[in-house]
Amino acid sequence: MAGWGANQGQYGKEVYFQYEDLDQQQESYVVGMWAFLVTEVMFFGPLFFIYALYRWKYQTDFYLAHNDLDYVLGGVNTMILLFSSYLMALAVFNAQKGKLKAQVWNLLGVLGCAFGFLIVKTVEYSAKFTKGYFPDGQFMFNYHGDANPEIARIFYSLYFTMTGLHGVHVIIGILVIGMLTFLVWRRSQGAQNTVTDYVPTEMVGLYWHFVDLVWIFLYPLFYLMPK
């Protein structure tokens, strides 16, 4: 990725020709990433509004329906994501310090956490599938809990939509972090045509923290619903 501009080939100091200096370059990267994250907020936001609407109307049945979710598994997943966010922050720290080998280990840790999250999610989902709680296209929703089945269907539709969309983001995160890990590892081996500074790590980090952020709200709303 060595392009035109100042300080070519110096890790963390390359300035591309369209920027005045390093500060401006970095700020525009971060602002661009945040503009993307704002669209992500718009993407997830309406789902939270749908949740709020039905939860307000059908609190009793939502509460009864949520008892079938395993709050321990959900809590394990929350801790996995929080820890992976911490590792990602450390990866950015090491990238800023130029400690690329440590950074590669941090990123591998994040990847491990992401796979762990998906494994726990698979366990949870398959338990719901076995019970017949997935409101599928054939309308085979087969609810046996205490709540009104009609409302339980709304609850599980929201549950699968929101956690599913979040899960897709985790999978995308795995792909992006995987590529980043490879690029940083190549840089740590001395290759020039790869990441030129810590900014790609910070961008991926912002995305990953956002995925964590969504789960921070999903967990209390679905697994820890107050009466």
Binding site: V31, W34, V38, V41, M42, S85, G205, H209, F210
Partner: peptide, 30 residues
């Protein structure tokens, strides 16, 4: 997470504008 891990607290004014703006927009949309 937003302030420390994502570093908005230490970001420039423009970064803060975008970051806070997104969440304020979300609340407005409600």
């Amino acid at each position: 997470v937003v302030q420390i891990f994502m570093g908005v607290k230490f970001g420039t004014k423009l970064v803060k504008f975008y970051a806070y703006g997104g969440f304020i927009w979300f609340l407005t949309m409600s």
